[in-house]
Design a protein around this nucleic acid. Structure first.
Length: 744
DNA sequence: GACCTGCTGCGGAATG
């Protein structure tokens, strides 16, 4: 097809000429479908299509066409909101090339953009503005009185990488900001969203336009049925050559300790296979933690040194400095030299890094959705996507716990691979209250207007806004608690104002982000910034100790608690520091698929010999424990409950049993109970099943620390419990397990 | 033992 089709004819001649000049021989189906509704400027649109399928153009060609047709108007015409600064920089370059022909100014606004550029835009606002949610928040707080004029001529709001916002605090913030934009300009503005991995389109539509998701036009490309080649490789854990006392003795004797001495045998074997298989081409190696990224980047670098070949393996994660990360990203874009990035989810989305030969995954994937996103990084241009998973399981001894004996890590990987091949993936979390973000938005609203009436605030945020599931009673309780904490105060005329504590919170730049981050120390060597490290009390930094960071080995020479700076010099060995953090929740469907894998006798063709052995060991233990028809077992020391359900159900049952006085802790796919026999636990589970499912908020009362999100500590107790329950528990799911338990 | 994302204005020094 030539681009003169009907859809093409809709574009303004200047935009059509640009398309022509690009030498495109045809338009994609998403593009032809998107033109008419976006040009009309009446409906909201979601475009869901694979990476590099032209979905950005599907949005921008009609938007630019609409702007060109009407000519320049005062103020900003298009607000493009992106979750990443790097993505804004990428898009800015692409859009600028299109828009300079059309005389549409393009601006970017995020934390790395100089203040002079921002000041210039405020003097003469026009065209398209590419911005992060946090910078948009800052505009509301710092220039609230000007927002209406700045955005008065707004035609479109574009949200990129929509999936990254669904079900998160940052997503609630985005919904609130977009809603507040419409309140400021006193009219509805069409919302255009882009994504490559949306599982549930109805859910995404309801997120984009709360209350009217069914009116959102959905444009979905079905052309990404690419082939996948995969292998799951199994490894048996063996202890490092030097550990504990022998390592301390070697260090005290001044012996040279290398990474090979402190790495586990399976880590050495995995690094060996990665080195042999991946060297010479471009690949992404995903690990589940920043610590593991450091271990493997270091082991692979040392292999390169020993083989006397140039190093092609580089670490990339969120705690590394911008310099180091951009260096790796530049190498990935450079097609002349092969490069392998060892990374966390930092390279999962965003910047275009070109073609990648294969994906390696060390440890069980955190979720099916992230695995899909990671896999999308490889196998473009008709090549199959390649995924290799490296799974380690411990040697079995008399002290091995049932989850380890069941080879849960391997079986979870098999389950997730099966679901990936079925093209299923986890839907985003729903039903959460995001009360911490409601506090933030309330304070921001007060700052924007210099004061706000309680009824207006409720209407803006909860009534018609994104926090619609917060009742007026709960909102009033929230206002009282914030008043008691001197966060807000009420003037004699009823106006809500910021109080002392509120002023302090809002007047610091850290206010603009909805999510919380720990205090961090800066790691520096010879004046060069290497990155940052959250330092816990459990792991104090001592001068003299060794560490691995940025894929290299260091010794700490100085610790300055004032500016929180750690000085490092190159050293021979060490282990990476602990970074802390919380993992992702495992979904119900994954645990159900795990149960199916245990019950099944077939061995998937994608397992290597060791992985196949580990799977049969897991199935043997599953049979030995009698788990096919028993949910409660014991190994002589502890008892275990297997609900074969996701982490929310596990958390709910754990809280219910804790409330009954049992000592319960999480043990991966099961719950471990100390000091109670299986008959006792079974009787208790049966007893709980006969009661009605409890109010989750009442159940949350038994949990000691419910402060998770940024402003949770400002909430009244009842609301903190409600937010925690909505985030953590699944009472209907838990009681479904309990009732099945009684019947069987 | 467990991911990631983001942020302002000002003062002072160095440079063109």
């Amino acid at each position: 097809m030539s681009p003169e089709g009907t859809a093409f004819a809709l574009l303004h001649p200047d935009v059509a000429r640009w398309v022509w000049e690009q030498g495109w021989t045809e338009l994609r189906s998403t593009q032809t479908e998107a033109f008419a509704p976006i040009l009309a400027g009446e409906v909201d649109v979601i475009i869901s299509a694979a990476t590099a399928s032209g979905k950005t153009e599907a949005a921008y060609l009609p938007i630019c066409s609409a702007l060109t047709t009407t000519g320049p108007t005062s103020g900003i015409s298009v607000l493009y909101v992106s979750p990443l600064k790097a993505l804004i920089n990428d898009q800015f370059d692409r859009l600028d090339r299109l828009c300079e022909h059309l005389e549409i100014p393009v601006h970017r606004w995020h934390g790395d953009v100089p203040g002079t550029q921002k000041a210039k835009l405020l003097d003469d606002p026009s065209g398209m503005l590419l911005i992060t949610p946090e910078s948009l928040e800052a505009l509301f707080v710092l220039r609230g009185a000007r927002i209406g004029a700045l955005l008065g001529g707004l035609r479109y709001v574009v949200v990129d990488e929509l999936h990254s916002f669904l079900g998160t605090e940052r997503g609630a913030q985005l919904q609130s900001l977009v809603h507040r934009v419409e309140l400021a300009v006193r009219r509805r503005v069409p919302r255009i969203a882009l994504s490559a991995t949306l599982g549930d389109m109805a859910l995404a539509a309801e997120f984009l336009r709360p209350g009217a998701g069914k009116d959102v036009r959905l444009i979905v490309a079905d052309d990404d049925a690419g082939q996948v080649r995969l292998q799951v490789r199994g490894y048996r854990t063996t202890p490092p050559r030097l550990d504990g006392a022998s390592l301390r003795a070697a260090l005290e004797a001044g012996d040279e300790v290398t990474s090979e001495d402190t790495a586990e045998g399976n880590e050495l074997a995995i690094a060996g296979h990665l080195f042999e298989t991946l060297r010479g081409s471009d690949n992404l190696i995903f690990a589940n933690t920043r610590s593991e990224v450091e271990i493997f980047a270091d082991l692979l670098t040392r292999r390169s040194e020993q083989a006397k070949v140039p190093n092609e393996f580089f670490a990339h994660h969120g705690s590394l400095s911008k310099d180091l990360r951009e260096d790796v990203e530049t190498r990935l874009k450079d097609r002349t030299r092969p490069v392998n990035a060892v990374c966390t989810s930092t390279l999962e989305m965003g910047i275009d890094i070109g073609d990648v030969r294969s994906i390696a995954q060390i440890g069980a994937p955190p979720s099916v959705a992230t695995t899909r996103q990671r896999l999308g990084r490889s196998g473009r241009r008709g090549d199959p996507a390649v995924l290799r998973c490296y799974i380690s399981e411990p040697e079995i001894s008399a002290r091995t716990s049932p989850p380890d004996a069941l080879r849960a890590e391997l079986v979870q990987t098999v389950a997730m691979v099966n679901l990936l091949l079925e093209r299923w993936y986890e839907p985003p979390a729903r039903g959460e209250l995001h009360l911490s973000t409601l506090v933030q938005q309330l304070l921001s609203l007060i700052a924007q207007h210099g004061g706000v009436r309680p009824a207006e605030a409720y209407s803006a945020l909860c009534g018609n806004g994104p926090f619609a599931n917060v009742s007026s009673g709960r909102f009033a309780g929230l206002l009282r608690a914030l008043g008691a904490g001197e966060v807000i105060a009420q003037a004699a005329d009823g106006l809500l104002l910021l109080d002392v504590a509120g002023e302090q919170i809002v007047n610091h730049y850290s206010f603009y982000a909805a999510f919380s981050t720990p205090q961090e120390w800066r790691l520096v060597s010879g004046g060069r910034q290497l990155g940052t490290l959250p330092v816990s009390d459990r792991q104090p930094l001592r001068p003299g100790s060794l560490m691995i960071f940025a894929g290299r080995r260091w010794r700490i020479v100085g610790v300055d608690p004032g500016p929180r700076v750690v000085d490092l010099v190159a050293a021979p060995g060490g282990r990476p520091p602990r970074f802390g953090g919380t993992g992702a929740l495992v979904h119900d469907r994954v645990r159900q698929e795990m149960l199916a894998v245990y019950r099944d006798g077939s061995v998937p063709a994608y397992l290597d010999a060791t992985a196949a052995e580990l799977l049969s060991e897991g199935r043997r233990h599953f049979a030995c424990y009698g788990l096919d028809d028993r949910a409660v077992i014991d190994d002589g020391l502890e008892s275990y409950v297997f609900p074969w359900a996701g982490d929310r159900v596990l958390h709910t049952i754990a809280a219910a049993l804790t409330a009954e006085g049992l000592d319960v802790s999480g043990a991966g796919l099961a719950l471990a109970v100390i000091g109670a026999a299986t008959v006792e636990i079974s009787a208790l589970l049966g007893d709980l099943a006969r009661r009605p499912a409890p109010d989750p908020v009442v159940l949350a009362a038994a949990v000691a620390n419910k402060t998770v999100e940024k402003y949770d500590d400002l909430l009244p107790d009842e609301l903190r419990a409600a937010g925690y329950a909505a985030r953590t528990f699944d009472c209907p799911g838990a009681w479904e397990f309990l009732r099945r338990f009684v019947v069987s």
